[in-house]
């Protein structure tokens, strides 16, 4: 599970970031998002798409057992999380994000909203239920 991303076709529009914040927080705020677009324009003329691939490496490093794997989705339990940041350092993708108003790292919930909206349809195949709804 997780996203299969064709990063070279990303145009850097950040629609994924804004729809993620609306879907998961009910707010317009691309910084409250489980996905990040990073510009590599100056050197490589491209963007990086940074998002959790649900590899689960963060699960074992969490001292508070706040992270679990459920049906292929790595999830943080905000009740158990102390926002210590150990998982952030351990994530091989750098795909756990902090926000001053949120008491736990923000990560992809595999809700599929970004995949559905991505104008280039590059955010890969998610669950079979979303098939046919992918843009592009």
């Amino acid at each position: 599970m997780g996203m299969d991303i064709d990063m070279l076709r990303c145009t850097g529009c950040k629609l994924c970031q804004i729809v993620c914040s609306v879907a998961n927080f009910g707010e317009n705020n691309p910084k409250k998002s489980g996905i990040r677009i990073v510009s590599r324009l100056f050197t490589e003329a491209r963007y990086d798409v940074i998002v959790c691939d649900h590899c689960g490496e963060c699960i074992d490093v969490c001292p508070f057992a706040a992270i679990s794997l459920d049906s292929g989705v790595v999830t943080i339990d905000p009740e158990l999380c102390t926002n210590c940041g150990i998982c952030i350092d351990a994530c091989p993708k750098g795909a756990l994000f902090t926000h001053p108003e949120v008491g736990h790292p923000i990560k992809c919930t595999l809700c599929g909203e970004c995949e559905r909206l991505c104008p280039r349809g590059i955010l890969g195949a998610l669950a079979a239920s979303t098939e046919g709804e992918v843009a592009d």
Binding site: L8, R9, T11, G12, C13, K14, L15, I18, L41, A45, R46, P119
Partner: peptide, 9 residues
């Protein structure tokens, strides 16, 4: 490569 402004398809 292609490049977009914010939230533009």
């Amino acid at each position: 490569g292609d490049k977009a402004c914010f939230a533009c398809p």
